[in-house]
């Protein structure tokens, strides 16, 4: 993979369809058929930033940075909100294997499970307004 970076600013998750054209070919190159799961995870992180960081307002922009490095993809999603106390929600790695039944599975829970299952790493900055997603490419073990 040739190192490539994209930085885009969007105000509403609807604009994801405009910027995904830029990184889509690299997702296919890095993740093959898993690109759909990776894209769904990026989309989830953007929706979270808009919903929780900006309280569903389109007045402020969300920074979407997608970096394709030699062996992995690193994504940073930054909103202009006040952040949240993510340390309250820290969970053990076995969260990845935890599944509630469908009746309990409202949309926010489903999104975070998707992120945890698909990404190798999911982190927040101290303030809680920047989310970092990392995943190794398919052939990197």
């Amino acid at each position: 993979m040739t190192k490539t970076s994209f930085v885009r600013y969007i105000n509403n998750p609807k604009e994801i369809k405009n910027i995904r054209k830029d990184y889509y070919p690299y997702l296919v190159e890095g993740f093959g058929s898993d690109q759909l799961l990776v894209e769904a995870s990026i989309s989830e992180a953007v929706v979270n930033a808009w919903r929780h960081g900006h309280e569903e307002s389109d007045d402020r922009s969300i920074r979407v940075e997608v970096n394709f490095l030699h062996s992995r993809m690193v994504v940073r999603i930054t909103d202009q909100g006040e952040g949240f106390d993510w340390q309250k929600y820290q969970c053990h790695n076995d969260m990845r294997h935890w599944f509630p039944c469908m009746e309990e599975l409202e949309e926010p829970g489903r999104g975070i499970i998707l992120l945890l299952r698909v990404m190798d790493s999911l982190r927040y900055n101290k303030k809680g307004n920047e989310c970092l997603l990392m995943k190794k490419y398919q052939n990197q073990g």
Binding site: S33, L36, P100, M102, L105, I113, L114
Partner: peptide
């Protein structure tokens, strides 16, 4: 949709889904 059809004793079937789409449903236990 699934929850609403459950209330009406209905069904939801999915056809033609790619492996990735099926995996998305699998990962979220749907």
């Amino acid at each position: 949709l699934k929850k609403r059809t459950n209330d009406a004793n209905g069904t939801v079937s999915i056809e033609g889904a790619s492996d990735s789409i099926q995996e998305l449903f699998q990962l979220t236990r749907l």
